[in-house]
Write a protein that binds this DNA or RNA. Sequence first.
DNA 1: TAGATTGTTAATCGATTAACAATC
DNA 2: TAGATTGTTAATCGATTAACAATC
Lengths: 211, 211
Amino acid sequence: MGSKYISISVIKRLPRYYRFLGMLKNAGMVRISSRELAERMGLSASQIRQDLNCFGGFGQQGYGYNIESLQAEIGKILGVDKGLKTIMIGAGNLGKTIASQIDFANRGFELLGVFDKNEAIVGQIVNGLPIRPASDIEDFCKENGVEVAVICIPYEEAKSVIDLLVDCGIKGFWNFSHYNINEKYPRVAVENVHFNDSLMTLCYQVINLDK
Amino acid sequence: MGSKYISISVIKRLPRYYRFLGMLKNAGMVRISSRELAERMGLSASQIRQDLNCFGGFGQQGYGYNIESLQAEIGKILGVDKGLKTIMIGAGNLGKTIASQIDFANRGFELLGVFDKNEAIVGQIVNGLPIRPASDIEDFCKENGVEVAVICIPYEEAKSVIDLLVDCGIKGFWNFSHYNINEKYPRVAVENVHFNDSLMTLCYQVINLDK
DNA sequence: TAGATTGTTAATCGATTAACAATC
DNA sequence: TAGATTGTTAATCGATTAACAATC
């Protein structure tokens, strides 16, 4: 629809707006000005107004923003109700934790299946879903129209599985491995969670605190 | 020592350089030019040279960079050998996974203790460390000179624990909760890992792929 | 109406890219 | 020496901030 390009910097702030507005709503607040929201979030009021106006005029001059409806608008923009059909690849320690701790349903996803190549754990139940053998991935994707995969397997195993998944039509990856998905597949959406990178960044910051 | 300010954008790229150089080293490569590294990493050669020259001239004209020594230099900058004394707060599903899966030692940290307020799991062993009661946090920090805390407890519990930790001299937080540590304590180093924000960003990207 | 606060344009700031002289 | 590639300065691009007219 020729809608204008929104920079990734703006997109990355939306979930945080969503979260803060949810908390304000729960606290019983009804309206808020960009100035006050900025104060609470540690941003500038200008930035908030700029960000929101990428998507439309959600506020009202002289009044500010209605918290509940602004949160709903942002949720719609992010697609929290999309229920994207999702599978998890890898049910080791991390996979099990993510599958059971993350509230996929309220973030725009529907977790349909969990897969692992380790036959010894196939059949175990994780958050209500049976662990399936990796050999079933292809059929499952095709039968269920899976759109997104969560990658919780090591680097070495990632390559061939990701080739398969892209082949099956997966177009979004929540990637906990170090495998660089976008290098080979620049057209799929990827969100990387790189624990080690985050941790090393923290180390630098701590040892340079006084500068 | 009046060393010039390095922007956070640069810092956040260093662990990725470190990782790629490690892989090239393992693959037996000895030297690389900024142009070739840029191609492999999906960056520009200019950016790599700019980034590295924030810290010194690690290359050699006409030759490029020695992979092993460049990786070592970046490791030193990041502080991978600092062994920052670290504790984990919260030994639920996520805490246990992080404590056992993350290679703290090779990222600049030394995990000394794991704490939980749930008496029922106190005494369990996680990655060789006994889970200790939350009431021991203060003494343990003071006796061991703890510098960093990994926060794996929910939002509601975070506030009071973080007040205590800052009081005990903790100056760095690897924060898996939604509690906004820097709002109250702007002077401590914080790296947030916000799974939900990452996931929602992915949803936006997937539903807007064709734009 | 007067006061408040948005939506939006213009100004500033910072980060990335381009260019090239220095030099291995 | 000639070719390659860095280190570094200048140009460009994009994101943030400031300002203010529009308007509720």
